Simulated scan of single mutants.
Amino acid sequence: MSEVVFKDIKLNDIFILKRGKVISKEYIKNFKGQYPVYSTQIDQPLGYITDNMYEGKFLIWNTDGLAGYIRIINGKFSITNIVGIMSFKEEFSHQNISLEYIKYHLEPIFRKNIKGRMGEKGKNEYSKLNSTMIKELDIKLPFPINDEGEIDLETQKVIANKYEKIMAMKELLKEKKNEIEALSISFLEDSDCKAMKITELFTPKLGDGKYTQKYCLQNSGEYPLYSGNTTQKFSLINKYNYEGEYLTWAKDGLAGYLMYHNEKFAITNHRGILIPTDQGQKINLKYIKIILEPIFRRNIKGRLGIEGKNEYTTLSKDMINKLQEKILIPIREDGSFDLEKQVEIASKHERLMEIKEKIVNQLNELLSKEIEI
């Protein structure tokens, strides 16, 4: 479709933007009927009432909550005050403009310009995009033009259909990505195991509260200092508290994630360290990290997030001491810990994670590509 000529038209010139009105659940309960009331739920109406505010085919968008998502509604319906509606101005109409075409162009722009707390798939998100914000964006939409210089409705329909197919493929890719990320394979089926409480293997201990940003500036050095961040050092300082192999956990922020260390290092009081007991000296820490991290993450408290976004959770030393879940440790015939089996399982898991990461990165690259028609 490279030969198609496009003309930019301002969104503000095409539509009148208007917010809905307050419709409470109590009102819906008292006036049950046949006409849907749409709020911020993407996949279903809030309820049904006896009257309607609008009749026809319209674009509506979420002004709050999961802001910026657009739906096409056709029929008799009402909208709440956290949803906006786009009504054609007199010079434009359904006769020459496809709402499906506009939706696929407009929704990514809306979502990129929301304000507030972000999330994914409706989890832990509260954002906003009201009509004033949209007008200030001064959005221009490209419309195909026919040989007479008029807006070409049929070409819009063809493009919108291609968008729909591509978006369906992207949704399928997202599903596959989620399945891969959730994939968990146990390598313990062929092993005899012993169930151990966490506190039988480790004594949890918090880091030092003296490691402030000011302290780090005054005591810079070569030894890594770790805090709540799960992927990088907090600072480099001139002394260390621990040397050798250890597991540490994030107490605050992205709580429960574990780090494996084999170095000289220190930790702040936003991080804890697992000091091996006598029995804990006889196990492989990389193996323990695989088994223990999901247990820690299941027992965090606080505001959850997705991939580290907008999460603030905690897992204190006392919370760990109270955990009743047990860790399965492979054992030999004589009942002693099978260190070789632990190392084998850790190695298999590491290879699995590398494969998963490679596939997920490839899927993310595909999902992030802009749609070109």
Rank of each mutant, 00 (worst) to 15 (best):
M1E: 15
F6H: 14
D8M: 13
K10W: 13
L11D: 14
L17W: 04
R19F: 14
K21H: 11
I23P: 07
K25A: 06
Y27M: 13
K32I: 00
K32W: 09
G33Y: 13
Y38A: 05
G47E: 12
T50P: 11
N52Q: 12
K57Y: 13
W61L: 09
W61K: 03
N62Q: 04
T63K: 09
D64G: 01
R71A: 13
I73S: 11
N74Y: 10
G75H: 15
S78M: 12
N81Q: 15
G84K: 03
M86S: 14
E91S: 14
H94G: 08
E100H: 14
E100P: 06
Y104P: 06
L106H: 08
L106N: 08
E107N: 02
F110T: 00
F110I: 00
I114C: 04
G119V: 02
G122M: 05
K140G: 05
E148Y: 06
I151V: 04
D152I: 02
D152G: 04
L153H: 06
E154A: 07
T155D: 01
T155P: 03
N161F: 05
E164W: 05
E164L: 08
M167H: 08
E171A: 02
E181D: 07
A182S: 15
E189Y: 08
S191K: 13
A195I: 01
K197M: 12
I198W: 00
T199N: 14
T199R: 02
F202R: 02
P204R: 00
G209N: 15
G209L: 08
K210D: 09
Q218R: 12
S227T: 01
S227I: 00
N229D: 14
Y240G: 03
W249N: 01
L258H: 02
L258M: 11
M259W: 02
Y260G: 04
E263I: 00
K264Q: 13
N269C: 14
H270L: 15
H270W: 06
L274P: 00
T277I: 03
Q281L: 11
N284I: 03
I295P: 07
G302S: 05
G302T: 06
E307S: 11
G308E: 05
G308S: 04
K309Q: 11
E311D: 03
E311L: 06
T313S: 09
S316N: 10
D318W: 01
D318P: 03
I320R: 06
N321M: 12
N321G: 06
K322I: 02
Q324G: 13
I327H: 05
I331N: 01
R332Q: 09
S336V: 01
D338K: 00
L339K: 08
E344I: 03
E344A: 07
S347H: 07
H349E: 12
R351E: 15
E357F: 04
K358N: 10
V360E: 10
N361F: 13
Q362D: 10
L366T: 02
L366D: 08
L367D: 10
S368G: 11
I371D: 06
